[in-house]
Design a protein around this nucleic acid. Structure first.
Lengths: 221, 221
DNA sequence: TAGATTGTTAATCGATTAACAATC
DNA sequence: TAGATTGTTAATCGATTAACAATC
């Protein structure tokens, strides 16, 4: 019987993944729980405890292999499943995601991008032609994407998402400043404002002669 | 002696704030911990416990006043301090933030926006003229912003941030996919990839005949 | 073998939940 | 007053940390 993995552990995995990506970039091939924990401001105990939820990835007396560990985490998270995404909304934010986000890193491919504006439909963003919303149902039934990234207005988000769910989309990454909620689908709401508020709090603490402790932080934890 | 507020509590406050904003929009003036907890998928106990860290905002037998509670939370978080921000990087992401983000809601004003590209400098985004990076030092010493929102490339982020810290900026909201870290300043890193990975995980669980439990989620929690 | 570092168990700590008395 | 709902204490639960035996 495999023990259920707690949410706290899962939520730490993307962060490990980031650091391991960084280590890979630097050409490191091996890392100990102690070194990793120092870099990440957590305890070595926690690092080992976390990895051991999924079985022993390390080697006693040596540590962990950076590429192997990175691959394991990607696999646990499903970031190597060849998920297929569509981006709905090719305004500035959609365009920014299209241009800057390394989807391949997460095993995700962008199957199509959509917009409602006739001015935008037909243009090319990062080598991909923007399609009309009118096409989206046919597109989904043919291409079967399972993920949608929504950069829409507050008003249209809920409606569009509900439609897409009908068309078979199972996961939603929502950037509109509404709390999107759908029964039977998975939703991640990205709230820039939350990060901003956490910063405001930190600044306020500082101004009020706060303890000025470690002054370090990391969003989306 | 006031008890130190735990991080878990603080990180929940922006979420309460969002729901209270929503309730305000709907014209609700009063809410009980039970109703709020149901809406937010937490326990009523936790709601009361959280608010009571800061003193009693409610009234027995009645509940909480929506506007008063919202204001209290804003105040706790420092989202009413009149913080002044600059946005550095007026690419698609910077432009999107400028256009879509309701800074006023967090008591933040945008004091200036900057870009390195000569094509962009001098243009107007959302009624604000984009300044050259050459001006940034003089601007900071004169206008004294305390917050910077960085939408820069992976390579330039760390360097620019370090400079801005010298010019008196105390808090950084970083959108580049590097882990920005600065001694003695507050950094919130926004990682879109983390949200995407959490979605991949949810989809994988589902495909593997997972328990298909509550299928609900909320980023930046 | 000696040294290093994991895997894993046990101890601690903190956060969440339950319960209920206070009070509007 | 009776009903409702908070504020707050006590009990439970889970997550983090410490410690160390296993082992490379």
């Amino acid at each position: 019987m495999k023990k259920r993995i707690s949410d706290s552990v899962i939520r730490r995995l993307p962060r490990y993944f980031r650091y391991l990506t960084e280590l890979t970039r630097c050409g490191e091939t091996r890392i100990s729980s102690a070194m990793l924990s120092e870099k990440m401001n957590v305890t070595a105990s926690q690092v080992r405890q976390d990895f051991n939820c999924f079985g022993g990835f390390g080697q006693q007396g040596y540590g962990y292999s950076v590429p192997a560990l990175k691959q394991e985490i990607a696999s646990i998270l499903g970031a190597d499943m060849g998920n297929r995404a569509i981006i709905v909304g090719m305004g500035h934010l959609g365009t920014a995601l299209m241009k800057n986000m390394n989807f391949a890193k997460y095993g995700v491919s962008v199957a199509g991008v959509f917009d409602i504006s006739p001015q935008v439909v037909g243009t090319t963003v990062n080598g991909m032609q923007v399609r009309s919303m009118d096409e989206i149902e046919a597109f989904c039934s043919q291409e079967k994407p399972n993920l949608a990234i929504l950069t829409l207005s507050r008003d249209s988000t809920q409606t569009v998402a509900a439609q897409l769910q009908q068309y078979g989309i199972r996961g939603f990454l929502n950037f509109a400043s509404v709390e999107l909620s759908l029964d039977g689908a998975y939703v991640e709401n990205v709230h820039f404002g939350d990060g901003l508020m956490m910063l405001c709090y930190a600044l306020k603490q500082e101004q009020q002669g706060g303890d000025g402790s470690d002054a370090k932080n990391s969003g989306t934890k």
